[in-house]
Design a protein around this nucleic acid. Structure first.
Lengths: 216, 216
DNA sequence: CACTTTGGTTACTCTGGCGTAACCTTACGC
DNA sequence: GCGTAAGGTTACGCCAGAGTAACCAAAGTG
């Protein structure tokens, strides 16, 4: 007998890259459930099946860890969207595919992304980080609208463009929240609904229709 | 001489109701600047010109204090909106007035409401509170849309209605954030922009126009 | 087989800041 | 003028939970 070498071979001694992902998985989960502040490094370490000092060794401070989570998740999301919305498609098709990818992603990572994202909106240290990511999305949407507008010989002020894009992104985020809170809801259907709100308005704008406040 | 009674008459010994408002003012300010977690009760007390135990005596725990802030601010906002959007006006007029009131409020309370609001979205203890308030707004918007739809002999599923309303509210919130971050921006103009996005889409919906996903 | 790197652990330290106990003092009713 | 409540203070207890020191062990590497 005396079998000791391979008594528990499945465990332990994993390469760094693997452990880091496990830690991030655990961190996303715990941050989601508890919120940044209430989440404890001990619980995260525990959940990752590792001891706390390892987390510090690999991913650093609690704050840095959170940012690492944000980064990983947002990168994944951006890739999902970019991969779906090819730039050579017509505007409505691009919008539709982008939205579908977005809601698909959120639907598949409900407690991951959406809640992480919610966290980040509030707290100063991460707001900047988040603003950058949202900024990229806004730019994409704005670029899309601008492109479509120019194609139909129209134009619109830069600020107006930004604000409209911002509103569309905001509406999508809200519906993503809604989706994350309604486990029974379907991602595709939500995307369709968003499209109805977004495109019907955007389409009008593209046609040159605008609304003006009453003179009163 | 011997004047001691009225040596510092302007200070101290204020009735509870007054002090409570001062405390809430201070709390809103500090919570906004620092965020819930980083805000310290000491700083709030200090800023209110009072000592910490008084804050505990009047408004309770840090958490309770935050909720009290949320309550006061949201009540004020709801009143501003409700006061502007009379229920007997036509849909577009109501929407326009409501939006103007909303952005006017946010513009006037930039660091107050908007940041408080951002805070609350993330952290569990307040998310519920906030969800209730947003729920009321969503109901109002949904009711408005439903009313207008029925008036033109149309109808729409309850979930669809809710989701559309949710998207509109979300877009408004996003623009409110944008407004809070751009001190130079004008509230009225922002409201007009939002109206362009919201109404152009909603108007189409009201006319029975819908968008459907391509068969592919 | 030394010997070093990499993956891992237990068991602390230390501090920020919430919440409170104990204690004054001005106003007001009677 | 005297009791009592309402407004106010200083000074502290206390603990969760971030971050660390010190130490161990299994793989590579020559």
């Amino acid at each position: 007998m005396l079998a000791r070498v391979s008594s528990t071979p499945t465990f332990k001694r994993l390469p760094r890259a693997v452990r880091e992902q496990q830690m991030l998985d655990a961190a996303v989960k715990v941050f989601s459930r508890r919120g940044f502040h209430a989440a404890s490094m001990d619980e995260i370490a525990d959940d990752a099946g590792i001891s706390k000092p390892m987390v510090y060794a690999y991913l650093g401070t609690k704050e840095e860890l959170f940012i690492a989570c944000l980064h990983r998740e947002s990168t994944r999301m951006m890739e999902a969207i970019a991969g779906a919305a090819a730039p050579d498609l017509p505007a409505d098709e691009r919008l539709w595919r982008g939205l579908r990818a977005f809601f698909g992603f959120v639907g598949a990572h409900r407690d991951g992304w959406a809640v992480l994202y919610r966290q980040a909106r509030g707290s100063q240290p991460f707001a900047a980080e988040l603003a950058t990511m949202r900024g990229r999305l806004v730019d994409v949407v704005a670029g899309m609208l601008d492109h479509a507008l120019r194609a139909s010989g129209r134009e619109i002020g830069a600020t107006d463009l930004e604000v409209v894009a911002y509103a569309l992104v905001g509406a999508s985020e809200s519906l993503a929240d809604w989706l994350a809170d309604h486990p029974e809801a379907d991602a595709g259907k939500t995307a369709t609904r968003m499209m109805n709100v977004a495109w019907l308005g955007a389409d009008q704008l593209l046609r040159g229709v605008t609304w003006h406040p009453p003179v009163a």
